[in-house]
């Protein structure tokens, strides 16, 4: 008999749960192995959502991470926050890749090459942020991470991982006031970087 899709997702969930617990116990490889699993799940979910009637990115991204979490993590076995935050780190990174890929694709469509006008119109209506801005943010963030990896991770967790400020602070084991400071700096830095990149581009 074939393996049903629910069996597969259950097997996947067990794997993720194990990886999370190992990552919590300090296994760096486990944390690395987590990313492809979470990414796959999020992308599959995202693809399915995009096919549905209202591909409203803003609304559904939250649902995506929630849903991925509920699907992939056996909450009875991963009680500790340290275990969970690895999941959100992976989810944040995955979401970032998905959104960036998506923005690139939309960028291409916008510049022509796609003849399907109906689809284009649909996208225009539903796209929340201009894709260029998201790509610019992604570039700036990559650059920022080279100098301030921890602060960049804070942005990642909050912006792409759907964590609140407090949760992100706890995940990074920094105090709330440090997180405030880091956020203010990161935000200003990124805006400044994006502004300086805008001009030469035309």
């Amino acid at each position: 008999m074939m393996m049903s899709s629910s069996d597969q997702s259950r097997a996947c969930a067990a794997q993720v749960t194990t990886l999370l617990n190992r990552a919590r116990d300090g296994d760096a490889q486990a944390a690395a192995n987590l990313l492809p699993l979470v990414y796959e799940q999020l992308r599959a979910l995202a693809d399915r959502k995009m096919q549905q009637e209202r591909p409203d990115q803003t609304l559904q991204a939250t649902a995506l991470v929630h849903e991925a979490y509920l699907r992939l993590v056996d909450t009875t076995k991963v009680q500790l926050w340290e275990g969970r935050w690895h999941f959100f780190a992976a989810a944040a990174e995955s979401m970032r890749r998905i959104l960036v890929d998506n923005a690139r694709r939309r960028g291409r469509i916008k510049r022509g090459g796609n003849l399907n006008r109906v689809d284009l119109d649909k996208l225009e209506v539903t796209v929340h942020d201009p894709p260029d801005e998201l790509l610019a943010l992604d570039e700036a963030l990559t650059r920022f991470a080279q100098q301030h990896p921890e602060k960049a991770q804070l942005v990642n967790l909050r912006y792409f991982g759907g964590l609140t400020h407090e949760e992100a602070a706890q995940a990074l084991r920094i105090s709330l006031s440090t997180a405030d400071r880091h956020w203010a700096y990161a935000r200003a830095w990124l805006y400044r970087q994006m502004a300086s990149e805008e001009k030469p581009r035309h």
Partner: peptide
């Protein structure tokens, strides 16, 4: 550099103000 940072800090309505995930990134201001 710092002045540009400060100007950037005062910016409102940029991409970072609303996460695509629907949380409000400006909450702790």
């Amino acid at each position: 550099d710092v002045e540009r940072l400060l100007r950037a800090h005062d910016r409102r309505g940029g991409i970072l103000e609303a996460s695509p995930l629907g949380t409000d990134a400006t909450a702790p201001t």
